[in-house]
Amino acid sequence: MKILVAAFDPFGGEKINPALEAVKKLDDQIAGAEITKLEIPTVFHKSAQTLREKAIELKPDMILCVGQAGGRYALTPERVAINQDDARIEDNEGNQPIDVPIQEDGAPAYFATLPIKAMVQKMKEAGVPAEVSNSAGTFVCNHIMYQALYLTEKEMPSVRAGFIHVPFIPEQVVSKPGQPSMSLEDIAKGLSAAIEAMVEYHDKEDVKSIGGAIH
């Protein structure tokens, strides 16, 4: 089994992206699956092009994209990506699309095809805070999740795909009072546990557990 794990480079004025640094720490094999790591630019559409080229070359069984969500305290597999770019800030090349569809012929939204609740369960068992997220935002993280699922629907229908957001690491919050953080080691441990669940549930239905939100 082959899993492509893609993570963004630093953005928004940060010098480091914990998503990318944690992915670099992953073993090359997890639960018997071969892990291929890919750095993608925090740039609308270019990120998707980079991901698509690698996916076509690798022909993975699953795709996991990883990005930073400053302000969150847990690792959060995303449930859904929407067909909308609405950038509050510019990406790394100065693009700032507002109210623009990601793909004109795409669905209004795509749900993750990874076992997100099993992933949360496995991460918690590993001692890492985790929960399901019901919004990936409208920046490049939502964009790449949507594009990964669009790619799998249109060109690679047997491939499962999804996205995890990770928190800041401690060095990023030194000048951000009140912001939560998580050690890079724990983020990497959580991602590894999530991938173990992906492998275990590759040909199974996701677990039925509470993962909803009031608001």
Rank of each mutant, 00 (worst) to 15 (best):
E53H: 05
V100Q: 13
A81P: 08
D28H: 01
I187R: 05
M156D: 06
H165M: 09
T152S: 05
P180R: 07
N142D: 09
P60M: 01
V174M: 04
G162T: 05
T138A: 13
G71I: 10
A126F: 06
E21Q: 07
G162D: 08
Q103C: 15
A87K: 02
V140E: 06
R88L: 13
P115Y: 10
S183K: 12
E185H: 08
K2G: 06
K208G: 12
I116L: 14
D91I: 08
E78R: 04
K37H: 12
P157N: 08
A107K: 14
P108M: 08
M119W: 02
N92E: 03
E21W: 02
Y110V: 11
A136I: 05
E200T: 11
Y201D: 02
A197T: 06
L38Q: 00
V199K: 14
I40S: 04
I195G: 04
E93P: 00
K37W: 12
E14T: 08
T42G: 01
G162W: 08
G13M: 07
G211K: 02
P97G: 09
V132N: 07
K154S: 13
A87M: 04
I40W: 01
L191I: 12
T152L: 09
V174H: 10
T152N: 10
R88S: 13
I164R: 04
V5Q: 01
P101D: 05
A19C: 03
E185L: 10
Q96V: 02
I3F: 02
I63C: 00
L64F: 00
G94L: 08
A87G: 05
I30P: 00
N17Q: 09
D85M: 11
H165E: 11
E34Q: 14
A22T: 03
F8H: 05
P157E: 13
T138N: 09
A48D: 11
K54G: 00
V5R: 07
A31F: 02
G67K: 05
V207D: 00
K176T: 11
G71Q: 04
L4H: 08
M198C: 15
K124W: 03
D99F: 09
I98P: 05
I144M: 06
K154V: 04
P97S: 12
Q68W: 01
E196N: 13
K122S: 14
M156Q: 11
L38V: 09
A33D: 02
I164G: 02
H202T: 14
A69V: 01
H143Y: 03
T50Y: 01
A48C: 06
I169T: 15
S135I: 12
S175D: 14
M182H: 10
I144C: 08
F163H: 05
F111W: 14
S209M: 15
E104I: 14
L191W: 07
A193T: 10
M62Q: 15
A161E: 03
A81V: 04
I16Q: 03
P18I: 06
S192N: 11
K117M: 09
S192E: 15
K204G: 02
A33C: 02
E200I: 06
G13D: 05
P97V: 07
P167W: 06
V23S: 02
K124M: 07
S181Q: 12
E53T: 13
L51F: 04
F11Y: 07
V100G: 01
D61Q: 13
N134L: 15
Q147T: 13
E21V: 09
S175E: 15
I102V: 11
A81E: 07
A130M: 03
D86T: 07
Y201H: 14
L20H: 13
Q103V: 15
S175M: 12
A6P: 03
K15G: 00
L75R: 01
H143M: 08
